[in-house]
Deep mutational scan, measured.
Amino acid sequence: MQAFVKTLTGKTITLEVEPSDTIENVKAKIQDKEGIPPDQQRLIFAGKQLEDGRTLSDYNIQKESTLHLVLR
Rank of each mutant, 00 (worst) to 15 (best):
T55H: 06
K11H: 12
G35F: 04
V5C: 04
V5Q: 01
Y59I: 04
K63W: 10
Q49F: 14
L15T: 01
L56E: 00
V26D: 00
M1I: 11
I36V: 08
L56C: 02
S57Q: 13
Q62D: 10
K11G: 07
S57N: 10
G35E: 03
Q41W: 05
E18C: 12
K33S: 11
G10C: 05
P37F: 05
I13N: 01
N25L: 13
I23G: 02
M1R: 04
E34M: 15
E34I: 15
S65N: 09
G53N: 11
K63N: 15
T22L: 11
R42N: 12
I23T: 05
D52H: 06
I44T: 08
Y59M: 03
P37R: 08
S65M: 09
I30Q: 00
Q49T: 15
Q2Y: 14
S65H: 08
K29M: 13
K6S: 08
L43R: 00
G53P: 06
S57A: 14
I30S: 00
T55F: 07
L15G: 00
L67Q: 02
P38H: 10
T22V: 04
I13Y: 05
H68Q: 10
Q62L: 11
K27C: 02
P19F: 09
T66E: 10
P37K: 07
D58L: 03
P19K: 07
M1C: 04
A3I: 15
A46D: 14
Q49R: 10
E24W: 15
D58V: 03
K11A: 08
N25A: 14
Q31Y: 15
T55Q: 07
K33W: 07
D39K: 10
K27D: 00
A28V: 12
D58A: 05
L43C: 01
G35M: 05
E64L: 09
F4S: 06
V5Y: 02
E24S: 13
S57R: 12
N25F: 11
L67W: 03
D32N: 11
D58S: 13
I30F: 02
L15R: 00
G10D: 04
T55Y: 06
S20F: 12
T12W: 10
E16R: 09
V17R: 00
Q62S: 11
G47A: 04
F45E: 01
D32C: 08
M1V: 06
K29S: 04
T14V: 15
P37C: 07
D39F: 10
M1L: 08
V17W: 03
S65I: 08
D58M: 05
L69N: 00
R72E: 13
L69C: 02
G10W: 04
G35Q: 05
Q41S: 04
D21Y: 07
E51C: 10
R72A: 14
F4Y: 14
T7Q: 06
K11V: 09
P38I: 15
K27I: 03
Q40L: 11
Q31N: 10
H68C: 12
E34T: 15
I36Y: 14
K63C: 07
L15I: 13
L71W: 08
V5M: 02
L71H: 07
T66Y: 09
L15H: 00
E64Y: 12
L67D: 01
P38T: 14
A28P: 00
V17H: 01
F4A: 04
R54E: 05
N60C: 06
D58H: 11
A3S: 04
E51D: 09
T7A: 05
R54K: 14
N25K: 14
T66D: 05
L56A: 02
L69V: 05
D32E: 14
K33Q: 11
I36F: 12
I44A: 05
L67E: 01
Y59Q: 03
P19T: 08
H68V: 12
T22C: 04
E34A: 13
E64T: 08
L8N: 12
L15D: 00
D39L: 08
Q40N: 10
P38D: 04
